[in-house]
Design a protein around this nucleic acid. Sequence first.
DNA 1: GGAGTCATGTACAAAATTGTACAGGGACTT
DNA 2: AAGTCCCTGTACAATTTTGTACATGACTCC
Lengths: 299, 299
Amino acid sequence: MTPNWDDLRIFLALAREGTLTTAARTLGVSHPTVSRRVAVLERQIGARLFERLPDRFVPTSAGEELLADTKAMEKAAQSIHRRSAGLSDTVSGTVRLSAGEAMAAFIARHLAELREKLEQIEFEVAASHTLANLSRREADLLIREQVPEVGDIVARKLGRVAYAIYAARDFPVGRPARVDPVAALVDHPWLGFDDDHGYMPGQQWLLERLAGRRLAVRGNNWLVLHEATRAGAGLAVLPCFLGEPDPALKRVGDIIADVFADQWLLVHRDLRALPRVRAVMDAVIDLFHRERPLLEGKA
Amino acid sequence: MTPNWDDLRIFLALAREGTLTTAARTLGVSHPTVSRRVAVLERQIGARLFERLPDRFVPTSAGEELLADTKAMEKAAQSIHRRSAGLSDTVSGTVRLSAGEAMAAFIARHLAELREKLEQIEFEVAASHTLANLSRREADLLIREQVPEVGDIVARKLGRVAYAIYAARDFPVGRPARVDPVAALVDHPWLGFDDDHGYMPGQQWLLERLAGRRLAVRGNNWLVLHEATRAGAGLAVLPCFLGEPDPALKRVGDIIADVFADQWLLVHRDLRALPRVRAVMDAVIDLFHRERPLLEGKA
DNA sequence: GGAGTCATGTACAAAATTGTACAGGGACTT
DNA sequence: AAGTCCCTGTACAATTTTGTACATGACTCC
């Protein structure tokens, strides 16, 4: 059975350092791990690679014999490392990303780290809801909550956004019931979307529970609602990635199980192969993966 | 952070095979594993190495660029593989191993596999109890139950041997009590050691519980007791590695918690560095490790 | 001779990786 | 157009690996 190549890397480090403890430090693992990995390699190779003295490891003649080839592997690995540093230089150009305004804000918040990772790419982030800008090449990537039935658009699911009720931190609000969190709070002022945006997540859910009561404030996008909530204008259903990290807000009750929005990354089939577009796709996918607890309201 | 060298081995296999499924088969792992390992590598390298088509993986130009170096690593790894096959050729000569007669039988039972693994070594296995043959170079390795306080002898613990009561398979015997397994069986004939070997494991334990009753058969070594038990002469306390694998015997009750014997591998300090001695030591240590369930009566 | 330091070895808990099972998509055949 | 096969992706259970904590031994210093 082929030895694990990485055990050879451990072997080389131990040969160089002479002790489990220093080799472990160099490798960034624990000393028992180095010991086990070398033992496994010796078993697989069927030869003793080190003389175990009480205070150090010394390569045996067998170990010495394998060192030359292991160093050759290291040389090749170092070449791969150098080449991969240069690979990012081929990923350059401008990438236009369009998302709803709340999601665009979320992306914008992470632009610094995206730019640090993809230094040769120039980002354009636009807040928009339409598909028009994809087919007319106004945007390279879209983040949307629905997947259009358009043949030449490829969709990749990014994750799910959870929603909850939020209020300003000093807004006086009692403890909502778990079963119907709005019922105990209907007398408070509520913020929501206007009639043209009744399709927005949480809007119908909220209206059903308000049972005919009018919204205190109506807006046409999340950021308006967000700012109004921060200003103490009332309660609002907001996406968790907006509400949770905002120290000026507090969450009122649990995540709303019935309100969520799947996020999809849309790209034109022809653009997908472009290195810079793919790099941004990967970075966004990674971002959603890492921020999943926040997006789902479980941070 | 340095990529795991073994991920590069996975990368190479996928580049060659073209699909996760066939690469997985070649590597002897599952297809999700190949997928994950390549994804980790791509994240670490910061570049896409494969174009993911619906039915296959195709290396990107970046992937192609790294293939040459990865193949160089493979070449070096193959050289290590060839050299390690030849390493066993340097381990040759005669190794004399001395153990108690039961343990010598145990070792002898595994000589075939030891010889297969260490083809250039000639084994001499002797049944003996004394230390004299170590200092007078009559034996290279000893397996003993005590560690002598002799400065130039190095001891390595091999493991623990458990003991239980055994009878011939058709020997009529009831169900022994758990607390005192001998109590319900004292009327049966019992086999044990003679007075000169009162120190043998289990002997004093047995005599205490027989409360003055005489042993039906007394012998001076385990093999005698073993054979007598097989012949239906009576019940005996035997080491599990003798009793368990013998289809002619049955165990009567559980392992005896109070009766056990630690086995130590003894070697003269000067001999320990000899490749052939060390190779046999390692093989014996490995044997005890693999046979531990049997030795402890838990097979 | 005792204390302190540094090393390895080992047991067990924690973390990470892998395998299994299944879903979904695409290509091919009928 | 429907069915089949093969592939990848994903969730979760199972397995393996790693890290932590501690014991023990060797060496050095006082």
